[in-house]
Structures are given as C-alpha cells and as structure tokens.
Design a binder for these strands. Structure first.
Length: 708
DNA sequence: AACCCTCGAGGTCA
DNA sequence: CTCGAGGGTT
C-alpha cells in the first residue's frame, strides 16, 4: 500500500512507464471495488468527490500513456452499467392506495357507506372479502397471451419502475399462466415480500460476508427488488401473493373471490387466509382471529383488507381521489415503546412554520431505531404536556411515522419545567406569529417566522422546494447542493441557479471542480440538468414558486384555468392596475377560496417576487402551456345538474361518472348550467331550467350522450 | 360534514 | 415513499 501511496501523489506526466502501469492497475482494482460496493452492496465507501478524483486520475494517466490503457480500464465503462437506472412505466390502470379503518366502528361506517351508495338494504347480501394485508411492496405483472411481458413497481401509483428482470427471478411468479386459454391481457397485482425465516437467513449471510444487515423484512424485500443487477435479486429469497388486477381484457369470474381462485389456478400464490364476510360480526371475528395469528404467520402483515366481493358493485362504487370506495384496510394497533425525551428542536420550514421535533433516546420500535418524532406544534406540546427529560410512549403511526403518544408523568424527573415555545425564529431571530384567518378570525395553530426573505432557513427551504422533484426537478441539485451553494453565497434565489454556468464561464465564480463535492462529471451533469429545465411546464413552475397554499393540485388548476404563463401574468397584472389585486379574479375560480386567492394575489403584488419572476422570464427559454384535460368527451367542460330520481345510478355515481368525463357537476340551475338531467319527480329546477333555456334531457338521453 | 389539499416529518436505499 | 394534522373548499 505504501508504494502505491507514493505514486498517487505524483503528477501523471512525472511517472515512469513502469510506475504508470502499476498505478493504472491499482486504480482499475480500486474503482471496480468501489463500483461493486456502490451498485451491488448499496454501501459506498467513499464520497462521490473522492470517487470522481480516482476516475480523473485514471484518465489523466491514460492520456499521458495511451499505450498502457488496460482492457479492463474503468474509463471504458463510463456510463455503462453503473449509471443505468430503471425505466419508468406508466400503469394502464393506476395502482391505488386504500382508505384506513382503525376500529370496529370505522368498519361499520365503511359498510354503511357502501350500502348507502349502492342503495342496499339488509336483505341484499353485501359480502366482503377479507385477507391479510402483507407488509411488502406492491407490484404489477402484465401478461399478454399468458406470457409475462412486463413487471413494474407501484411507484407513485400512476408511474412505476420496470423491474421485469428482477421479478422474473422470483420463484412464486409464473412466467407463463397455467391455462389453455389465457386472456389477451391480464395484469396481476400483488405483494412482493420476504418470509421471516428467509429474512433471518439472509441477514446471517450478510453478516458473515461482512455486509450490512437489513432492518426488517420489508426493507430487505424492497432493497432486493430494486437491485440493478438481477443476479443479486435472484439470490434473495423473495415471495409473492396475488390479490388484485389492473388492466384486463376479460375477467375469470364475477366476484373478487372467483378471480383470486382463478389466479391461483393460473399458478399464483393466493393468501390461504382469504375469507368472505357476510356481516359485521364476520368482519370483527376475522379481525380477532388474524390479530391472534399474526405472530405465527411467518411474514409481516399490518392489517386486513376488506373488499366488496361483487365486481359489478365495485364498478358502481368507483373511486374517491386515489382510493377505491369498495375497499378498506383495517389496521392493527401500532407497536409502542418507551424512551426518554432528551430535547426539543425547533425547525423552520419553507413557509416559516416553526415545527418542534422531539429528540429521543434511540429506541427500537417495530423493527427500526427511532430517535426523532414530530411534535407538530405548540398546542400539541401543551396538550400532552411534554417536557424535556420526560419518559414518553412512542409508536410508529401506520407503522411508519414515529409519534409521541403520551407522557408517563410518574417518571417525570423533579424540576422538569413545561416547555417554553420560542416567540422568535431560532434561525433569524425575527418575531414568530400565529396568523389570523381573515374571515373566521381564528388563530392558526402554527407559529410562523416573519423573517421572510431575511430568514436564511426559509430562503433555503424555498430553494429546495423550487428544485424538488415535482417542481423544477433539477437533477444533481438536491438539498445538499442547495445548502452548499447558499453557504458560498452563490445561489440566493431561483434566478441565480440559471446564471450559475454563465458566471463561472465569465470567471465571476471559480469553476465547480474546485468546490467540495464536485468532480468533472457531476459538474457537467449539473449544468446539463439546469439547461434542460429552461423549458418547463406552467404547472411545475407555478408549484415551484412556493406560493402559500398552492401545492401541486392548485398549481395545475391555475395552469389549466389560464392556459399559458402570459395569460396568467396578464390576469395578475391587469387586476393589480385597477388599484385592487388579482383577488377577485382568483376567487371566482372553482376550487380557489378566499384564503388561497389572497395568498396568490399577495405573492404577485410583492415587489421582490416581481423581480425574481422577471429574472426567471429572462432565464427560461420556454414556459410550456398547460396540457388539455386528459379526457375528451361530448360533455367535457359542460356544467351539468342532476334533478329528480335517477333510475340506473345514484346521484353520487352520476356525479363521479360525469366528472371523470370532464364535466362539472353543480347542485343548482343557473345561467351557467349547460345541461339539466331530469328524472321523474323533477320540480323547481326543471321549471327554472326551462325559463333559462337550459338544455333538458332524461337520464337515458344523458347515458347515451356519454356513450353508456 | 365530507372531502381535498398542503405541509412537514422520518426512514431506507440508490 | 408514507403518514398525520389541520386548514380550505364546497
């Protein structure tokens, strides 16, 4: 080692040929080892910068001694397997999440809700299937003509990652459906998980090999499935349970239970504890049974999933935002633990919100070590009377997020004083206030730093938000880099990001390579990523600005309403010139109320925001117009009112269907109404519609219009 | 009152 | 990625 150390200090062109040869051999070995640690063992041993330095040195020596380039030279592998990532796959049918129930009462509510929606009575048999909710990761497997052609992770529900190669290594999953007449298309959905015994054995092996052990089976399964090298996945003992489906050309049955039975016959493992519940009593009994059996199952479950068994009813029930109305997950009570609260930190968020975080003596709960937990706000601390030094009960809500449940007062040390929530921002020392709601006059629960632009914490958080994934999504510019650039005083607002490359080129700033954590490649990639975002979608930009109360959805709503950046700016400006602000215009948008409208109007009335916007307009090449709504139908954009009795569907169903087609459903007839769908017994609304000359149609006419 | 949305937190792996 | 609190909208 000492010999190579000498060499590594020597400039490439000062090396003798023999030394260069030795040095190249050493670098090849070392870089390959780092590659393996990083890509296969998920345990990088060096920083990216050090790694880059190794590669750079290798390249420098190679260029000085071109005839010595090794056949296994690391430079030949640049960008090959290491930088490859999983390809994104859009799910034909989104993979949704489930609503949660925590008690028998919640389950009764769920069942009642379903009955109300379907207009059922106790005489109608409402069967629910019940099965354990496996704690793993969901995947969607697409079979065409009975052959497995694509497998994807859930991702965000609409877009996942292509993990076909890895999925194919799982023995539970058939590559071909065991049936003579396979459907044209069938997407099987289920859970990839790891059995307790396999998990223990895997960790033993990891330990023996000197590799890090996994915290729990779920993480082990997730890590295994996301391996870039599928031979590694193959060596991991993954298993699978099928429980649902996505896009299908035909269904082998008319109930949930039937289809699962068919899946079993096709060669998939289906959980053996699947039951059908006829009534509330069955629902509660199976819960008790499963809770008792939980420890002996051999795999982790975090609850029970109940689904309406009849598929025609599932169709009628449809969805609320991202969850089906026909299914619910009954969660098991969370595991709890006790520990000592050693301190309370105050964090400052992008909107200035001061959030207290409990610093805990590390303790294991539900398989992971917890050392922090959010305390949400001042009131929460008061309500629970949490004091520094207290012994507290903590649990992982939904088995994920650590939270402080309660304080054990008996164990309180003498002299522990109630926590005094700071009245000033811990970062910039500005006053912290509770905002007052303009109409109700109620005070907000969160204290906010009033520092705004002078508060470094807020500015940095806003920058992080600007570059984050759902906003500008600048790759290579994450939280760490934002902080670095801020520390160096180089990036103070979004515009600075786009001027970075230009200023370095103009020698106004030192080249990135001279900075900590940047190598040649990472610098080049960063500039490329920034340039890529000089063309940006309107909704992303609006979201990225970080206007209070304007999240992804509202940003998209604004983008869709105005269509283009120019139109949007004009609306904000024109309204401003009249002496008022854009408020009136904004509140008239459906979905934007007084608070949100005020926040947006204020943002655009602010001079320093105007400055940044002008800078962005100059720096960006194109702000893309909002895309047209996804669905195009005869009723897109029309305002529809339903009145009287509907025969083929409930009012809620009708509303859901119409909205899915891009129509707006309203409760009362006005001159804005385009269509009134009138059933038997329609009264004043029908009269009013006729008066106003609104088009009136029957339920049947409506159904044929929307092509049902 | 139901539902939707923002906002912030923590953990793990790449 | 997931969750929960709490505010906003209808």
């Amino acid at each position: 080692m000492s010999k190579s150390k000498d060499l590594s200090a020597k400039a490439p062109d000062k090396l003798t040929k023999k030394q260069a040869e030795a040095e190249l051999a050493r670098l090849a070995g070392e870089i390959a080892a780092h590659d393996k640690r990083y890509y296969q063992d998920d345990a990088p041993a060096v920083s990216d910068a050090d790694y880059d330095a190794l590669r750079q040195r290798n390249e420098a020596i190679e260029s000085a001694f071109p005839d010595l380039v090794r056949p296994d030279s690391p430079s030949g592998r640049v960008g090959a397997s290491p930088s490859e990532k999983f390809e994104k796959v859009r799910h034909a049918v989104p993979m949704l999440s489930l609503g949660n129930a925590f008690s028998d009462e919640d389950m009764a509510d769920f069942r009642a809700r379903v009955m109300r929606f379907l207009k059922l009575t106790e005489d109608d048999a409402l069967d629910l299937t019940a099965e354990p909710k496996i704690d793993g990761l969901s995947a969607s497997l697409r079979y065409e003509q009975g052959k497995l052609v694509l497998a994807a992770t859930r991702g965000d529900g609409s877009e996942g990652e292509n993990v076909t190669h890895n999925i194919k290594t799982i023995k539970d999953i058939p590559h071909k459906l065991k049936t003579k007449s396979p459907p044209k298309v069938f997407e099987v959905r289920g859970e990839v998980y790891m059995h307790h015994d396999d998990f223990a054995a895997l960790n033993k092996r990891q330990e023996k090999d000197g590799k890090p052990v996994f915290a729990n089976p779920r993480n082990a399964a997730a890590g295994s499935l996301r391996q870039l090298d599928s031979t590694v996945t193959a060596s991991r003992p993954l298993r699978f349970f099928a429980y649902a489906w996505g896009e299908v050309s035909e269904l082998p049955g008319s109930t949930q239970a039937d289809v699962l039975k068919a899946l079993k016959s096709w060669g998939f493992p289906v959980n053996e504890r699947l039951r059908v519940c006829k009534n509330l009593n069955d629902i509660e009994v199976i819960y008790g049974e499963l809770l008792e059996a939980r420890a002996d199952l051999g795999y982790d479950i975090d609850g029970i999933v109940y689904k309406v068994n009849r598929l025609d009813w599932q169709d009628r029930l449809g969805f609320v935002s991202r969850a089906p109305r026909w299914a619910i997950a009954r969660k098991f009570p969370a595991e709890q633990a006790q520990t000592v609260l050693e301190g309370i930190d105050i964090q400052v968020g992008r909107t200035g919100a001061l959030t207290p975080v409990a610093k805990l003596k590390p303790v294991t709960v539900g398989g992971v070590v917890v050392s922090n937990a959010t305390l949400h706000n001042e009131d929460e601390i008061k309500r629970k009377d949490v004091r520094v030094g207290d012994t507290v009960v903590i649990q992982r809500a939904g088995d994920v997020i650590p939270q402080v449940v309660s304080v054990i007062e008996k164990k309180r040390p003498k002299g522990a004083k109630p926590f005094k929530f700071p009245k000033k921002c811990p970062v910039c020392d500005s006053h912290a206030v509770r905002e007052v709601h303009p109409e109700t006059g109620r005070e907000d629960v969160v204290l906010r730093c009033t520092g705004g632009l002078i508060c470094p914490a807020q500015v940095i958080e806003r920058l992080k938000h600007f570059v984050s994934r759902n906003a500008l999504d600048i790759e290579g510019l994450g939280a760490k880099q934002v902080e670095l650039f801020w520390d160096k005083g180089v990036i103070k607002n979004p515009v600075d990001i786009f001027q970075l490359a230009g200023r370095i080129a103009a020698a106004d700033l030192p080249p990135l390579v001279e900075w900590d954590g940047f190598g040649k490649t990472s610098a080049r990639n960063l500039f490329a990523a920034i340039d890529e975002r000089r063309t940006i979608g309107l909704a992303r930009l609006l979201f990225g600005l970080g206007i209070r109360h304007v999240g992804e959805t509202t940003a998209r709503l604004l983008a869709r309403t105005y269509g283009s950046w120019v139109a949007f700016r004009k609306a904000m400006d024109a309204a401003g010139k009249k002496g008022g602000d854009a408020y009136d215009e904004l509140v008239s948008i459906d979905g934007i109320g007084p608070v949100v409208a005020a926040a947006i109007a204020e943002f655009f009335a602010e001079d320093h925001n105007e400055e940044v916007l002008a800078g962005l307009e100059a720096a960006l090449t194109t702000i893309e117009d909002a895309e047209a709504p996804a669905t195009e139908s005869p009723v897109t954009g029309k305002t529809v009112v339903f009145t009287g009795a509907l025969e083929n569907m409930t009012r809620d169903e009708a509303k859901v269907r119409a909205e899915a087609l891009g129509a707006k459903v309203s409760g009362s007839v006005s001159k804005k109404t385009d269509i009134l769908v009138a059933g038997p017994g329609a009264g004043s609304k029908l009269t009013k519609a006729k008066d106003l000359g609104v088009e009136v149609m029957t339920e049947d006419e409506w159904l044929s219009l929307i092509g049902d």
